[in-house]
Amino acid sequence: MQGQNRSNIRPGIEVDIVLKKDQATGKLTRGIVKDILTKSPNHPHGIKVRLQDGQVGRVKEIMRT
């Protein structure tokens, strides 16, 4: 599932994100959502989240809900 809609994302789900430093390469980082940082209901580049390990990036794929 894609990560452009805020309604699909909630704390505790597993996602793949792109970190700011990896935007050029598109390298994905997997983790569990701790906080949702984007306030708008959707974002074309993916909803920005903070993972439980503290990394921040935009959701590209939702692994499971």
Rank of each mutant, 00 (worst) to 15 (best):
I13F: 07
K20F: 12
T29P: 00
P44N: 09
G46R: 01
G12P: 11
R6L: 14
I17R: 02
P11S: 15
N42C: 08
N42Y: 13
V33T: 02
G54S: 07
R30K: 15
L19G: 05
I32Q: 05
I32C: 02
K60E: 08
I9E: 09
G54T: 05
S40M: 07
N5Y: 15
K21N: 12
G26K: 08
K34C: 01
Q23P: 00
E14T: 15
K48S: 11
H45W: 08
H43S: 12
L28T: 10
L51N: 04
I47L: 08
K48D: 08
I17A: 03
K39D: 13
G3D: 08
P11L: 12
Q2K: 13
T25Q: 03
G31I: 11
N5T: 07
K48F: 03
N42G: 07
K39Q: 12
I32K: 12
K60P: 00
D16F: 09
T29W: 07
K39I: 08
T38L: 04
M63S: 11
I47V: 13
Q4T: 15
K60I: 00
G46E: 01
Q2I: 10
S7N: 10
V59F: 06
G12I: 05
I36Y: 09
K21V: 14
E61R: 09
N5K: 13
I13C: 13
D35R: 14
R30N: 12
V49F: 10
K60A: 03
R6N: 10
T38P: 04
V15D: 01
S7D: 14
E61C: 05
I47E: 01
V59M: 07
P44E: 06
K21Y: 02
A24T: 09
E14Q: 15
Q2Y: 13
Q23V: 11
P41M: 00
V49W: 04
A24G: 11
L37Q: 09
